[in-house]
Design a protein around this nucleic acid. Structure first.
Length: 695
DNA sequence: TTGTGGTGT
């Protein structure tokens, strides 16, 4: 450590040989006041004596910028790199920028970043010795080269978030560490469930790093009951803070968009001298920016989802109002269905929310629940791997040579049903052979930039001459943000517009057509024009969201590049000539997401599970009584179950598929058919085919 | 006849 200090205090920059910039000594002094600075000797000693080290870090310690920097100097002689992974792109780039500035080097030379395909590093000269990377880009690297010969140390930052990628990295690195005794691993986590990391890495040592957080006073309110109106409670608590507490901005955590907009409306109505902002990810970036950088003399109140818990930081928050709830993803592997449920958050999450009040000075957190409620909460949030579908992750593991998916040593294994579902789907999709090896198709799909099932759909589309139609459908379905603008006052008009704009009974095709309309309009832009302002009125008139469509355009560019370079696919668009090729390709690719009409009210039943749901009311198939559909997503909110993004298909397209053969149809316990309707429909289709071929 | 958290390739 003393050696590093000497380097930093030297007359010139030892890395570049040039003079330090004017503010160098000020930067160094600032860094030495960070809480983590007091622990650096202890950390370095533990680092030298162990292969794996767990750091339990409180917020505001400066760990993410200082520890990688220290290890950079410590490992400099070795000529090897240090990597520090981040769950989010923004964190990776801003840390790399900050650290390169602190070390007075050019970003992309000694210090760089890798986020997805985007790299800012010196590759040829191997000059980049400290890399901030998104977790996924390191997983990708492991795939091609799983002993990391050019790395001395891997740091997994924010490990407590337990993303699938971080869990995968830890499992893969655990194995690598056995082969490369000189490779080191540091797990940096918030002080939550730390012993779990230590146990996983054979009881490795732990160093605690204090934070810079100011004190946050925690207040509990009445016990949570079913009849408590969360919105009214939140509004009253904000009003109380506003009227009787000292200055400082207020941050309110609610489960979602609906609750947030209602609370914002009420607050604006009753508290005239309070500036109210909504904050959630689907909000346009312009509105997000307004909420994050509020200006003006009034007190500000930001009403937010979980996005403000980790991803975004807002200045000058002194009061936090915590509903104790969030929307959480629950995956049902049997139905391959995602459910978004409002559920109590974990204690770790509650503490993280409270901590947001203490970033600038002492703060207050008001929890809209009782201490007893808090004690009943889970200690930490269930890791992502337990809450998501497993197909893409399984494909990823197989592609980097892990054939034993069931025996893979996760810190927390996926649910056995998820593993079975994934294995079955990968076989059905033609990605996985019976012997456990990937097919050539599966190998390519593993590297596909979006959900691998879309690679299969495009491949089938290629056979039917409509590959690029399917690409466009894939990108619109993949977009997290809806392409339709959110304007509550015009929602009914917008819905009507969507339903009537469709020419075929296909939501997939309708979505792609809106995208095509957008692209045609965008083509009209002159090179010197700003497409956003040029298309503003057009988007508004057509109820479309510019940002979402622009994002889809970028994804499409990436897919086209991949398809041209890796998959060597020739462009083909058949939808203009042959209207059946696209729904037929969708029927074959999404045969595992087929459903049969059950009766009035647009009710369909999945095949073979026989689970009932209804067409989403915005579907252009509503009231069409189509016999069969394939759907993109089957989702449940509360008690309602909807098929989202559906296309009507002909039974004739199903009869040749393996899962629709007579001996494959699902049976009840007594041996009779679970869905006799399915057999009747397939038999009728076979009869129609026979009739048309004999004529 | 409705309305949904956050990441990443």
């Amino acid at each position: 450590m003393a050696q590093i200090q000497r380097l930093e205090d030297a007359a010139t920059n030892p890395l570049t040989g040039s003079e330090w910039p004017a503010d160098h000594s000020k930067i160094v002094q600032g860094r030495r006041t960070l809480p983590v600075h007091g622990n650096l000797d202890e950390i370095l000693e533990a680092y030298h004596q162990n292969q794996v080290l767990v750091l339990s870090c409180e917020t505001g310690s400066g760990k993410s910028s200082q520890i990688p920097q220290m290890l950079f100097y410590d490992e400099y002689e070795s000529g090897l790199r240090v990597a520090c992974t981040q769950p989010r792109r923004l964190a990776a780039t801003t840390l790399a920028e900050r650290v390169s500035k602190e070390m007075a080097v050019v970003l992309g030379e000694e210090v760089g970043y890798v986020i997805g395909g985007e790299k800012k590093m010196d590759k040829k000269m191997k000059k980049s010795r400290l890399l901030y990377m998104t977790e996924d880009s390191l997983v990708r690297r492991l795939g091609s080269d799983n002993n990391f010969p050019d790395f001395a140390c891997i740091i997994i930052d924010e490990a407590h978030e337990r993303t699938v990628e971080a869990d995968m990295l830890m499992a893969l690195l655990k194995k690598t560490l056995r082969h490369r005794k000189d490779l080191k691993l540091i797990i940096m986590s918030a002080p939550v469930n730390i012993s779990k990391f230590q146990d996983y890495f054979n009881g490795c040592p732990l160093v605690h790093v204090a934070g810079q957080n100011h004190k946050v006073e925690i207040n509990y309110l009445a016990p949570r009951t079913a009849c408590n109106d969360l919105r009214a409670l939140a509004v009253n608590v904000v009003a109380m803070i506003h009227q009787s507490y000292g200055p400082g901005n207020i941050l309110v955590f609610l489960p979602g968009q609906g609750e947030i907009n209602q609370v914002c409306d009420l607050l604006r109505k009753y508290l005239k001298d309070l500036d109210v902002f909504a904050l959630y990810s689907k909000l346009s970036s312009r509105k997000q920016h307004m909420a994050l950088n509020p200006e003006g003399p009034n007190r500000k109140c930001i009403v937010s989802t979980n996005i403000a818990e980790t991803s975004l930081t807002i200045d000058n928050i002194v009061y936090v109002v915590d509903s104790g709830l969030s929307r959480q993803l629950v995956y049902n592997p049997r139905l391959d269905m995602d459910m978004l449920r409002v559920a109590p958050i974990s204690q770790a999450s509650a503490n993280q929310r409270a901590g947001r009040a203490g970033l600038t000075k002492n703060g207050v957190c008001l929890r809209l629940y009782s201490k007893e409620d808090f004690e009943l909460m889970d200690a930490s949030t269930e890791p992502d791997i337990r809450r998501r579908s497993f197909q893409a992750t399984a494909l990823r593991l197989l592609s980097i040579g892990y054939m034993n998916i069931v025996g893979f040593k996760w810190m927390d294994a996926p649910h056995p049903d998820s593993i079975l579902r994934a294995a079955q789907d990968l076989q059905d999709w033609g990605f996985l052979k019976d012997d456990g090896f990937l097919t050539p198709l599966g190998r390519i799909a593993a590297h596909f930039p979006i959900d691998p099932i879309w690679y299969r759909a495009i491949h089938i589309g290629a056979g039917l001459g409509c590959a690029f139609d399917i690409v466009d459908i894939a990108v619109v379905c993949h977009s997290q943000k809806s392409i339709f603008a959110h304007a509550p006052e015009h929602q009914r008009v917008a819905d009507l517009f969507r339903a009537t704009a469709a020419r075929y009974p296909s939501d997939h095709v309708a979505l792609a057509n809106f995208f095509h309309m957008f692209m045609a309009e965008r083509e009209k832009c002159q090179p010197d024009e700003d497409p956003r302002s040029k298309l503003h009125d057009w988007c508004k008139y057509n109820f479309l969201d510019f940002d979402a469509l622009e994002g889809i355009r970028n994804t499409r560019k990436r897919l086209h590049k991949f398809l041209g370079a890796t998959a060597k696919l020739k462009p083909s668009m058949a939808s203009q000539r042959d209207v059946t090729s696209v729904p037929k390709a969708l029927a074959i690719a999404f045969a595992h997401h087929a459903a049969i009409y059950n009766g009035g009210d647009d009710e369909y039943r999945t095949v073979p599970e026989n689970t009932s749901g209804r067409l989403s009311p915005t579907s252009c198939l509503v009231n069409g009584n189509w016999e069969w559909i394939v759907y993109h997503r089957f989702s449940a909110t509360g008690t309602k179950v909807y098929f989202e993004i559906a296309t009507a298909i002909d039974a004739e397209w199903l009869v040749d598929l393996p899962n629709f053969q007579e001996n494959q149809l699902a049976l009840k316990k007594d041996g009779s058919l679970r869905q006799p309707k399915v057999k009747n429909s397939l038999d009728a289709a076979k009869a129609r085919i026979a009739a048309s071929t004999t004529i």
